[in-house]
Computed example of a mutant assay.
Amino acid sequence: MAMTAVARDTVFALRRQIAKIEGTLPERLEAPAGASLDTHVPHNTDLTFVRRGLAVVTPDAFLQTGAARLDGALSGGLPKSALNEIHGTETRDAGAVAGFALSLISLILKQGPRLPVLWVGTSEIFREAGFPYARGLHSLFGIEPEQLLFSEAPKLVDALWVAEEAARMTALAAVILEIRGNPQRLDLTATRRLHARAQAAGRPVFLLRQAAEPEPTAAPVRLILSPAPAAARETIAGPLAGSIGRPAFTITIGKSRTALPGQFTLEWNPDERSFEERWPQKEWTENSVPVVSASRRGKDPAAAAGAVLAFPAVGSPATGDEPSPGERAAHLSPRRTG
């Protein structure tokens, strides 16, 4: 486990060094006094300057999750006009991956126009993972059922075609493409087409991958997601024992523009429609349980001082049963010398 962590940090360090050499690493710059880098951007606006393309990007180009540490590691958040990968470590994590994707859609609809969202998948993935519960869309994410459209394709090639055509449409708030495993057709060329059309339309495309291994794609961000245990519900009197609180997700950055590693646990607040980061100490205190149940009669008092209980030694002969000198064990006999 330690070697895996060291290898991962080494890979991120190499990626960051390569990004610096190629000039693709985003850098925060402050415009000089009395000058502006772009006539269309106010002077007091926080800018992100990408050296290679000489492009100026405003903070509005990123979808901020609300978790400061995660947004900082992603250099502002998830890019809105791009392809973003969300990996589920196992097939049984499909519900958590779908919940996280719907949380991101809720943030998009909260910040911008409430346009419909298209969810594309194959018959296999919908048969295995199912569809979101319509009544839960509004209560948990503030999404009306008629805003979420589904396209079920019989084959992967059909799902890719639908996703590519939908990615260029500005009448959609976002496009979700859900794929299982590592199909050969979902190669670098296919993801480049999705990423290019998302950039042209200015809309995000979320690629949900269930039980898939990381592989080269055109997506600038890859998040590896797994469900986290829910904490107890908060009440006025404190945490309610035995209750189930807000949904939580464990997020690991597998790929990003800044090549910064990190792992975060986020809770989704359905009332505020926002994420909140759960700190490790809070998670430990809320989910900790005693290893051994306490005695019903209270603590067991220590024995009184001086009380000694004698037990016969195991295997010791009784009185009168001692072996004769000739029957003693060899290791008990005196050692011969000379």
Rank of each mutant, 00 (worst) to 15 (best):
L149H: 15
F150E: 12
F150K: 13
S151T: 12
E152V: 14
E152N: 14
A153I: 05
A153V: 05
V157W: 05
V157L: 11
A159N: 07
L160E: 01
L160V: 07
V162H: 09
V162T: 13
A163G: 09
E165Q: 12
A166K: 01
A167E: 09
R168Y: 11
M169Y: 09
A171P: 00
A171M: 09
A171Y: 11
L172G: 05
L172W: 14
L172K: 10
A173N: 05
A173I: 06
A174T: 01
A174M: 11
L177C: 08
G181A: 11
N182F: 06
N182K: 12
P183V: 08
P183I: 03
Q184A: 14
R185G: 12
R185N: 12
T189R: 15
T189W: 13
A190G: 02
A190M: 09
T191R: 02
T191L: 06
R192F: 08
R192K: 09
A196D: 11
R197P: 13
A198Y: 09
A198F: 07
A201G: 14
R203D: 14
P204S: 05
P204L: 02
F206L: 15
R209K: 15
Q210M: 14
Q210F: 09
Q210I: 15
A211V: 07
A212I: 02
E213V: 14
E213L: 13
T217N: 01
A219L: 04
A219G: 04
P220K: 03
P220C: 06
P220W: 03
P220H: 04
R222G: 00
L223P: 04
S226C: 03
S226Y: 01
S226R: 04
P227L: 02
P229E: 00
R233W: 01
T235C: 01
I236A: 06
A237R: 07
G238L: 08
